[in-house]
């Protein structure tokens, strides 16, 4: 029998009829009340806010215990100041500025602004180098094999070992501090972007090719969006490393910044100030990292990463 005879027009028409009939049935079984409104109950409010409430209560208890122990225990405030003293130092330090022409500023805000500006500048430079660098390494075999030994060598070197060298090159300057931040933050960004390109799912590339993508479109429509969450998590690691870079650079060589302030306040037995700066560093670091997490969830909701 010929193929054409086997599948006649009558068959075709019967098929359409049947297909329509099955569709009808499917629509009838679709219950419009399937999605129902759930009102605001106490349980629902608690479920959504419990994380925040528990953390807040936890921290309040922690600081109260600290205060009790330092007030009634026999503890030298040189080693452990009262929690209230630390908060007071932080408040005063963040609300006052050094007078015009002061040689040394005791204001935390001044030092914070210096460190924060350095960190941001360093991160911006690290991103400007790291993102295109990583993408190129992932995309081009030659660039990869030329650059990868240097990237791995520098990435595996403890960055602190380079500080004396940079001080020698650049002196005790802001440029030196920013350079150390860049060197600290750039490698996680490079390596993550590189890995992102390399791990792009083959089937997504195949799909794009089948539907007509040329090389440029392949990068623009598939590889880049796929790599974006990798880049963000690289930046997240970069922030952590960058902060280490900030403190190290200021501890070793500088006369301003939070790292210097820690050193200075410890040297002058102002332990409350030291603790205040440490607390500020924690808050700053957590805020930045949470911002990148929020950003990651925003741009890549499909990754659905369960954070620690």
């Amino acid at each position: 029998m010929e193929l054409s005879q086997r599948r006649s027009n009558a068959d075709y028409e019967r098929g359409i009829e049947m297909a329509k009939a099955t569709e009808q049935i499917q629509y009838e079984t679709d219950d419009p009340n399937r999605i129902q409104d759930v009102g605001w109950t106490f349980k629902e409010v608690w479920r959504r806010t419990r994380g925040f409430v528990v953390t807040s209560v936890n921290l309040i208890i922690f600081f109260i215990l600290w205060e009790i122990v330092t007030t009634y225990g026999n503890i030298n405030s040189l080693f452990l100041p009262k929690a209230s003293a630390m908060f007071q130092e932080l408040w005063v330090g963040m609300t006052t500025r050094a007078p015009e022409g002061a040689v040394f500023s005791g204001s935390i805000l001044d030092h914070f602004l210096h460190s924060f500006t350095n960190l941001m500048t360093g991160l911006a430079i690290a991103m400007a180098i790291g993102i295109p660098g990583g993408l190129l390494m992932g995309g081009n075999k030659y660039v990869e094999s030329i650059l990868s030994p240097y990237v791995w060598a520098l990435a595996s070197l403890p960055r602190i070992a380079l500080v004396p060298l940079f001080i020698l090159f650049l002196g005790f300057t802001t440029t030196m501090q920013v350079t150390i931040i860049v060197i600290s933050a750039v490698f996680p960004i490079v390596i993550n972007a590189w890995a992102g390109v390399k791990t792009t799912e083959k089937s997504l590339l195949a799909a794009a090719k089948v539907f007509g993508a040329n090389r440029v479109q392949l990068y623009y429509k598939v590889v880049l969006p796929y790599t974006l969450p990798f880049i963000i998590s690289g930046i997240q690691q970069g922030i952590g490393r960058g902060l280490i870079g900030v403190v190290i650079a200021e501890l070793f060589g500088g006369s301003n910044g939070l790292g210097y302030l820690i050193q200075r306040s410890a040297d002058t037995f102002n332990t409350a100030m030291t603790f205040a700066v440490l607390l500020l560093l924690i808050v700053m670091s957590l805020s930045l990292i949470n911002f990148t997490r929020w950003l990651e969830a925003k741009v890549a909701p499909w990754r659905n990463v369960n954070h620690l």
Binding site: E201, S203, A206, A207, A208, G212, N214, A300
Partner: peptide, 26 residues
């Protein structure tokens, strides 16, 4: 056109945007 075993949908695109992909590429 091709249908893939593991669907090969671009996860950052909506259903509609995924279906429009062929129009953007050619």
């Amino acid at each position: 056109a091709m249908v893939f075993q593991d669907y090969a949908l671009l996860p950052w695109r909506t259903v509609e945007s995924n279906i429009r992909l062929p129009y953007e590429l050619q």
